[in-house]
Simulated assay, not measured.
Amino acid sequence: MAREINILRRLDHPNIIKLEGIVTSRVSQSLYLVFEYMEHDLSGLIANPGLKLTEPQIKCFVQQLLHGLDHCHNNGVLHRDIKGSNLLIDSNGVLKIADFGLAISYDPDNPQPLTSRVVTLWYRPPELLLGATEYGVAVDMWSTGCIVAELFTGKPIMPGRTEVEQIHKIFKLCGSPMDDYCKKSKVPETAMFKPQQQYRRTRSSWNSFLSSSE
């Protein structure tokens, strides 16, 4: 919690949740973080059967998400858990990135080993699924891409139940990785998972996926 508080105090942006204060309880000896009030979260809006987001609304939400992430990354912060339930929206349509419990400070010029056990499974990039410990802003951007697709389809695009199933879903949709993927993504050679079936990345696979989601 101390790390989360420190990170939140460093960030000041209209698309990042504002920490209003800290409250302690003498009875339970607990510490509570107090944030500004937000009426909705993005997952709730997407799951609402009576609500169909328009393309301009989707663009507006994505733009705000990117602005917030840009501020995080420019201030040396990786969120590491971008998902719909962590994107809060007020009654005026303002989106704010919340829940920095897995966030961490990083220096792109001096990378340090980090845990790969971050990011909720459905939004976790392949390099983390394969055990990479050297990574940067790309992990947040992968999750953002999953959110963009989810906004258009109305449901998570790769809802895997296990890490193995998740990596299969990624390869099936995006194609199997190239032979030099391990080296470029700094994935340990011993952790590289190669499915028996090789998947090809094609535009038709994306089109068929989007058509089946409509």
Rank of each mutant, 00 (worst) to 15 (best):
Q196S: 10
W206M: 14
R10L: 08
E20L: 13
D12C: 11
V77G: 06
H67R: 14
P111D: 11
I22S: 03
D179T: 14
G21R: 01
L102Q: 12
P14H: 01
Y32S: 10
I5A: 06
R124Q: 05
L88K: 01
I22Q: 07
D41S: 09
T54S: 14
P111L: 11
T115M: 06
S185I: 05
G175W: 09
G68V: 11
A138G: 05
S105T: 13
S25W: 08
Y37N: 09
G175L: 08
L210Y: 13
L53I: 05
I89R: 04
S85P: 07
I167F: 09
G21D: 11
S91I: 06
M192D: 03
D81G: 06
L102C: 11
C182S: 15
T115G: 02
M192T: 07
R201F: 14
D180R: 04
G68A: 04
Q57T: 14
M192R: 12
G160I: 12
A103I: 09
I170C: 02
V23G: 00
Y135Q: 06
P126I: 02
I17E: 03
L69D: 05
E134K: 11
P159S: 08
M158T: 12
A191P: 00
F100M: 03
N6P: 01
S105N: 13
E4G: 13
Y199Q: 04
A149C: 14
G84H: 10
S185Q: 10
S28K: 13
W206N: 02
K186D: 06
